[in-house]
Amino acid sequence: MSKFYITEPTYLTVTEDGTLNPWGIFDNCTHLGCTFPWNNNEAQFQCPCHGSRYDAKGVVLRGPAPLPLKLAHVNVEGEYIRISPWTENDPRTGEKPWWV
């Protein structure tokens, strides 16, 4: 069995029912790879370097970022949270992810 290691910072989000979302969002802007914070007042991820904005699902709201944020699988297994690469169709678009 191959092992995958996620080494990029990843946001984990909580759904309305209090469980973890089945996907995590990588904290790397698709413009130039900057890391960015979540702006709770505007309910969006905001890259401070060049002004890209993403919604809570990582979809581009404003460029210069050309692509949505990468996703990772999030699985709760007992006391552990396991994060693994997302290689299936992107649930936001229904299409093959750009990062695969």
Score class of each variant (00 low, 15 high):
4 F>R: 07
4 F>L: 06
5 Y>F: 11
7 T>K: 12
8 E>T: 12
8 E>W: 04
9 P>N: 12
13 T>P: 01
13 T>E: 11
13 T>Y: 03
14 V>H: 00
15 T>I: 01
16 E>K: 15
16 E>I: 06
17 D>Y: 02
20 L>H: 04
22 P>W: 05
23 W>K: 07
24 G>Y: 01
27 D>Q: 14
28 N>V: 10
35 T>K: 11
37 P>W: 07
39 N>I: 11
41 N>G: 11
42 E>A: 14
42 E>P: 00
44 Q>G: 05
49 C>Y: 10
52 S>E: 06
54 Y>L: 08
54 Y>N: 02
55 D>G: 04
56 A>E: 15
56 A>M: 10
57 K>G: 06
59 V>R: 12
59 V>W: 00
59 V>M: 15
60 V>E: 08
63 G>H: 06
64 P>Q: 03
65 A>I: 05
65 A>K: 00
66 P>K: 12
67 L>Q: 14
67 L>R: 13
68 P>W: 06
68 P>R: 14
71 L>M: 09
72 A>C: 09
76 V>E: 13
76 V>H: 05
77 E>H: 07
80 Y>K: 15
83 I>T: 05
83 I>M: 10
84 S>D: 13
86 W>G: 01
87 T>N: 08
88 E>D: 15
91 P>N: 05
91 P>V: 08
93 T>D: 11
94 G>I: 07
97 P>Y: 04
97 P>K: 03
99 W>N: 01
